[in-house]
Amino acid sequence: MASPRYSLLRTLIPFDIYGGMKLTGKYFGKVLRQANRGLKRTHVVVEYPEVPTTLMPRFRGRLQMIKDEQGEVKCVCCMACEKICPTQVITIEKGKKEGRKTPFPIRYDFEMERCIFCEFCVESCGFDSIILNHQFELATYNREDFSHAMEGGFQNMFDPTPVSHYSVSSED
């Protein structure tokens, strides 16, 4: 707070605005000098499609099914994920497959348009058969493209999402 003694001077001469101008000017100069692809940088933007973004290991992306080393579906149709899902985006149909003791999911449908990426399904799974992968470029042009299925759907539950135009690319 301005002391009353100097308050007239402070009213007549805008030191306060000068302080702000100094700060913004400092940042302008810094960014002007560092707005290149050097190591030290003040600006915070990522030039996204060209420069890769970094994700944290626990990032929650698209739901993906996992196969074990034999190429066999790990899911045993315990229905835990279907039950826990707050938005009911998972539909599983239980069935049998020759040469497999545990139940086999005939259908495992995932409607991504309603998915809220809460990871409850992965948490509920006792068999580590699903994960949320690190894909976040999930936009598509058609609503149908959001439906995932094990086979026959528009997108495969096992495959990574096809990379779209704006893909994470590496600079070199």
Partner: peptide, 26 residues
């Protein structure tokens, strides 16, 4: 620059430059 961002950096994205970068590794 004052706001620690870069402002306009590219023009007509997808028309000339970026679209060729469809293969994301190169």
């Amino acid at each position: 620059y004052v706001q620690v961002r870069l402002g306009a950096t590219r023009v007509a994205g997808g028309l000339w430059g970026a679209q060729r970068g469809r293969t994301h590794q190169s």
